[in-house]
Amino acid sequence: MSAMLLNKEKWPEFIGKLTGKNLWAPKLEGEAMRFAPVAEDEVPELTDGNTRIPPKNIVFPQTETMYRFQLGDFEMKEPELKEEMILLGIRPCDARAMVIVDKLFSWDVDDPYYLKRRELVTLVGLACSEPGLNCFCTSLGGGPASTEGLDLLMVDLGDSYLLETITPKGEALVSEVSELLIEADTEKIKMKKKMVSESEGKIKRSVDHKGIPEGLPGLWEDPLWKSVSASCLGCGTCTYLCPTCHCFDIQDETEGFEARRCRMWDSCMFEEYTLHTSGHNPRPTRRERTRNRINHKYNYYVDKFDVIACVGCGRCINLCPVNIDIVEILRQVKEAL
């Protein structure tokens, strides 16, 4: 691990060196920010605040073609994934989410699509100097400058960026732009530490998850689920915008004689998610579905992979149309234990 310094005056030059390499960065579309490819002569500005749409679709696209075929033919054509990409400005929480989801996609069977994309992407993180209103990453093992999952971390020090390499992939990237960088001195590292601790201080929300994973099964029939889910609309906003939600559905689609098998995001908040062919639905109402969402993140995932499948990015709180607040739910769960 080494620390380098990039003067902000050299930012356009730095970007110029990367744009040819399939560079993606946060882009404001209307009021919703999401990751988008950076055009040849474009210089993205990394602003405060995380993207509204998480970068999970980079490694786990919303619709992924698994293979194509012709009707009446047995030959399958798998898409070739080989283009490397650089994701610039991913926040530590989103990178950490990828590490959490990795565990699932490399669990019993390795998922070729996901793992290939993970291999091809270089994550260049940006430490948060202005955490959002509903960020609570520090409660869940992350932090504004957490390096978990990142290849390279950038820290905004006002007039320059401090670049910390974490993995060989990050080092390779730094070596390509080395002429723009200078070695960082200890003063800058101190500045970084100060900025990170200040940033941590700005995080106002917290979740005390101690005892929750073990306690959730005992609350299966607790009345709290009814009250917290009463106003739920059953839309997929919370799950689709969650960087760790990873459920998918597989469909065959035909177009004339051409067909493809593809998988697309699915959400446990939809009624049809658990609907059986018989018409029976084991999770018949939004109470069960909300319970499942919380249980999956704070209980099942912990059972299986020993990590909470929530990184505290606050997106589900920010964008829930009816103000269903996971921090509030967890507080109630904690009380009910």
Binding site: Q62, T63, L233, G234, C235, G236, T237, Y240, L241, D249, Q251, E253, C262, M264, W265, S267, F270, E271, E272, P321
Partner: peptide
């Protein structure tokens, strides 16, 4: 995410065309 559909007071079909698979009116692909 279908939040526009779910929040709408007048979108209340028990069996929405968007959930149907047979026939598939609108593919799931995004």
């Amino acid at each position: 995410c279908y939040s526009c559909r779910n929040v709408c007071p007048l979108c209340y079909c028990q069996d929405c065309i968007l959930d149907r698979l047979n026939p598939t009116w609108v593919n799931r692909a995004v």
